[in-house]
Design a protein around this nucleic acid. Structure first.
Lengths: 340, 340
DNA sequence: TTGTATGCGTTATCAG
DNA sequence: CTGATAACGCATACAA
């Protein structure tokens, strides 16, 4: 299987390589007849430019790198879909990597992407990412970087996220407005910004509605096995508080699902005895019994917007226009179902 | 931001480019002292080889391309995870694309991957892929190709799949063994091999157990909106057959979930009145009410095995060893829950 | 209008 | 032990 290069085309037509190259790029200084000839042979032989050579010359790979914490995840699968679709539109390839929520792996992945010479990078940070040197490295190299969903504050780059605090505030306010008073929170780890923000939104909603914040109602769930964590913490919560708790706001749907499983198994009626609201609106939430109220995060939109921004910044960079980082908020919706 | 090249290193050390290159590759004919000097500066300056240049020279990209029908899919997300993990181990990058179950797009994606010069390609075919010329093109170029899950028979390449016919046979046999006799099948389209095989397994199980095959119990579900399709066909089925149907085997879980939704909404008891078994064992199936029996497909294993094979074939190709396509069957498990 | 020469960064051959 | 040179395939400034 012989690969077709400009050289081969040139030889066959008795032309020089540069003429063939220029003909293909529709340079004005090549005769129409020559262009015609070249194009015909190119089509016939099915010539495609060698992309490594093009990259080497142009210093562009037409590729963006994406690092996400976990591929098996309803929300992220939508994000990926959005990224792929946007990249496809603009003729960019996507190299996908997963950090498995591990900072060290994430650091390594960044390194790999930089080595590969991708034109831009999209990252949703792992839960264990504290130090941001690896991100700074990207910035220093002048490569457009966009953080999405799980972002960090202390880095100067574009960010696409939801307003976690506001969304959490709305959810908890909804519970309060509907008569719930002793509202527990199954929170995420202390590091991820969105887990922190959701907690803060929860707390603020309580305070703004003159409900005392009770830290014993907050359960830490950062074990990476959300479902089981939800189940176990639901049990623990009932042991701790008995009847003195009437609702839970969970930092994600999976925790809520685990909790529902516990309540269903133990004859604890939802929402009569305990109401729940989750976060992320996984598909499963709509078909559960009872169906779970949740906050829709619009993953697809987040992915496509993030890709759009990074591609825009790549464009700016190529044109020598300075990049000014932007922060995009994707609106959320509180979706009320049967769990509250 | 200045990028570091061999040239820069050479200049700073007063060496030639080739010596630096060889030092880095640990050639035996470079003095230890020189190697030392080179390595130190390389570390200090954080030199990384330009991957386009390396690719151009070596004619390898260290990248594999993956095309799947749909990223938002429980099963495929596991497959992706498996592929990523295996590729990562072997220092390969993964370019991900989705066909959206559209043959034309799939064809275009293949073209893009070939242009990009990926070292190998993994594809799960779209539901609408009939013609295989695009796959032949890959073969002709001598690029290792592995089909997984949704494969085609008429192409000579490695394939990784489950034994759909056998899995379906087992599921339906289970139903029969447990007293169900009027078993409906919600089948997939006529084109995808696995949908065909699952249907054939269903049919054979009936025949082998002396149950008459009744084509009016087979419902075609190829609308790409599985959940709704399941709901609607469940309704239709009840209208058509009333009490004269007692179980359904569905070609995927989502159809079963839609059907369950219909039955739950209409007071049709599961499994007393209607039993169900799905296919793929999505997470959601385990938390539904009632929980859905299903066939576990081991997506992660399928992904990692597929990647393993394609990487192996790339290796063979590089070493000049002829590639002999292999066919791998990933074992399935019938998981019995409360729906039958 | 066409062709020549040069360089992108790396590697490998061959000469010194 | 080191270095000059060519080549991978393409694109462009410049010469003809």
């Amino acid at each position: 299987m012989e690969t077709i290069t400009l050289k081969k085309i040139a030889e066959q037509l008795g032309l020089s390589i540069s003429t063939v190259s220029k003909a293909l790029k529709d340079y004005p200084d090549v005769s129409a007849k020559t262009k015609e000839k070249v194009r015909n042979l190119v089509t016939e032989l099915n010539y495609v430019p060698n992309s490594s050579a093009v990259s080497l010359r142009s210093q562009r790979t037409n590729t963006i790198g994406v690092i996400i914490p976990e591929t098996v995840h309803h929300f992220f699968s939508y994000v990926i879909k959005g990224i792929l679709e946007e990249a496809d539109k603009k003729k960019y390839n996507v190299i996908l990597m997963q950090s498995n929520e591990d900072y060290e792996i994430e650091k390594k992945q960044v390194e790999l992407l930089l080595n590969k010479g991708v034109d831009g990078i999209l990252i949703s940070l792992s839960n264990t990412t504290v130090c941001l040197d690896h991100l700074e490295k990207i910035r220093v190299q002048g490569i457009p970087l966009v953080l999405f969903d799980k972002i960090a504050k202390n880095i100067n780059c574009s960010k696409v996220k939801v307003d976690d605090r506001k969304a959490a505030y709305e959810a908890v306010s909804y519970l309060i407005d509907h008569g719930y008073r002793r509202i527990a929170h199954f929170r995420g780890g202390l590091i991820p910004q969105n887990s922190v923000d959701r907690f803060l939104g929860y707390k603020k909603a309580l305070i703004d509605h003159d409900i005392e914040f009770d830290s014993s109602l907050v359960y830490m769930c950062d074990s990476n096995s959300d479902f089981t964590d939800g189940f176990n913490n639901a049990e623990k919560m009932i042991q701790d508080h008995g009847d003195n708790v009437d609702a839970i706001f969970t930092v994600n749907d999976l925790l809520a699902i685990g909790a529902i499983d516990y309540f269903n198994a133990n004859g604890i009626k939802i929402p009569e005895r305990i109401a729940l609201i989750g976060f992320s609106n996984w598909f499963v939430s709509s078909v559960l019994t009872p169906s779970l109220s949740s906050i829709e995060q619009h993953g697809f939109e987040m992915g496509s917007k993030s890709a759009q921004i990074v591609l825009h910044e790549i464009d700016c960079k190529n044109k020598g226009i300075p990049i000014e980082p932007q922060q995009i908020i994707i609106e959320t919706n509180l979706i009320i179902r049967n769990s509250c």
